[in-house]
Design a protein around this nucleic acid. Sequence first.
RNA 1: UGACCCAUGGUGUAAUGGUAACACUACGGUUUUUGGUACCGUCAUUCUAGGUUCGAGUCCUAGUGGGUCAACCA
Length: 562
Amino acid sequence: MKEELKDVLGSPRNFIEEEIENDINAGRVTKPIHTRFPPEPNGYLHIGHAKAICLNFGIAQKYRGKTNLRFDDTNPTTEDTEYVDAIKKDIKWLGFDWEDREYYASDYFEELYGYAVKLIKKGLAYVDDSTADEIADAKGTPTQPGTLSPYRNRTIEENLQLFEGMRNGEYPDGARVLRAKVDMSSPNMHMRDPVLYRIKKEAHHRTGDKWCIYPMYDFAHGESDSIEEITHSLCSLEFRHHRPLYNWFIQNLEIFPSRQIEFARMNVAYMITSKRKLMRLVQEGKVKSWDDPRMSTISGMRRRGYPPAALRTFCDKVGIAKRENLIDMALLESCVKDELNKTAARLMVVLNPLKVTITNYSEGHSELLSIVNNPEDESMGSREVSFSHQIYIEREDFMIDAPKKYFRLAPGKAVRLKGAYIIEYEDHVLDQNGEVIEVKCKYYPDSKSGSDTSGVKAKGTLHWVDQSNTTEIQVNLYDRIFTDPTPDSHEDKDFLEFYNQDSLTVIPTAYAEKAICEAEVGRGIQFMRKGYFVKDPDSDDQKLIFNRTVTMRDTWKKLQAK
RNA sequence: UGACCCAUGGUGUAAUGGUAACACUACGGUUUUUGGUACCGUCAUUCUAGGUUCGAGUCCUAGUGGGUCAACCA
């Protein structure tokens, strides 16, 4: 193992890789590194899962090992096949492949049952007839030891018979449980005779009615790791206290010694990862669906337009450690912008239009101008954009009384129209309310983009759309969904009190250049000077809808604020 | 009133006993037919107090602060 990985060993990027390399170097692992991603199919994947997915698949990739997808489906009450499909879709979209290793803890129910029998036979497990409350009471508290169950000393034969009776459905739900016989006075609550099996006469999404007893997490998860010969089982910090139990099972069952390593889960400012709270946003109508672009679900971020590559570099840049953290959203957005800057085609869309008439450009005439699609990537070619006597510019790009640092259109000023000509202010028209409804300009015919001989200087460049040749689109402007970076950390307040009422602004009609008709769902586009956008899957031939992924960096806005 | 984990710039991560690095943010500046991008610059006596050592962010002790653990959830 050590020889085969010689080239990747020696530069661990975090404490987990360090531990893995220690294990390899010390000869504690003799097979290729094997990790797993173990979601429970009872909800949709979110940003936190993305981190776990990148970690598990990333480490296996680095050390030339494998990663299993394993559904931790041991609780039929909450789990469903619907989630299985959604989870698989999300992982694939993120760019990872579990190949043929799609496993289910429920596939191991028979084997797990055998393990339980083995523990009983070793005198290390017993059937307990106590009620849930009685068991909880006898458990003690972190500062006080628990007391022994009156059923703790049943004979092996009796336990075997009772456990079989549980499996055969002879007792009602909750009548008995199987518990491990560990240590009721351990300072670690998880070692105080943890429950291994409970009776639940419920249909399971995969095994149907075959079972009426189901294993608990501690018994199912670690043993599944062993069955799959997972070398390193990575989980979050709250499972630290489960580790002694995890190892106790391995030792007493004499099975493959998987190793559990815990890391701090990632918290991102303004994002929540509680399944229950995410569900409330949907149920209480704060968002439209699980994949609403404001949701921190993977499906939400996909619809928002975050490229999978950006999510991967984000998870990578965040790093792995064991301390509490709150990641600045700006880091996520920086990864998104960086990816989109390289890959997104540029287009001009006017969100809030203001008519501009080019007085010296003959009415009825029009021409096609060629504009490059992405200055960062020549291979993306160029497109034709039509130009004529009347165009739209952004309302905010014209001011009657402009401050000195304003580089846009204003009385006495000239600006460059991106890919077209330089125009200069002549006059403007107001309506009865004093609102500007039109600006009249002259253009410099010899200032055409790429062959400018006019010598006219224009400090600013504006995006624009030819009025006679536009496509109308709907634009959804998204902002952060909460007004507080950690909405669920306030003991005295419900997290929904921090719901951002302005998290969605709909622009029913924006004017886009024709090329927008070629936009594809999932492929980010830059609306020049306005931000990155992506076509929403609800679009159809009648109506094109675009979601704002993220805004451009705006130094003018900052300047203005001062 | 127990056990366990953690503590490095505004944020996140690194430095593996040899004189604090990288990224994001913020703030300056250069370039620019996107006020975008790119590029340059500025921003830390490593929670506190002792100790070990020629030398401590790193090891030891105590304190302080934060987190986790008492579901027939995962």
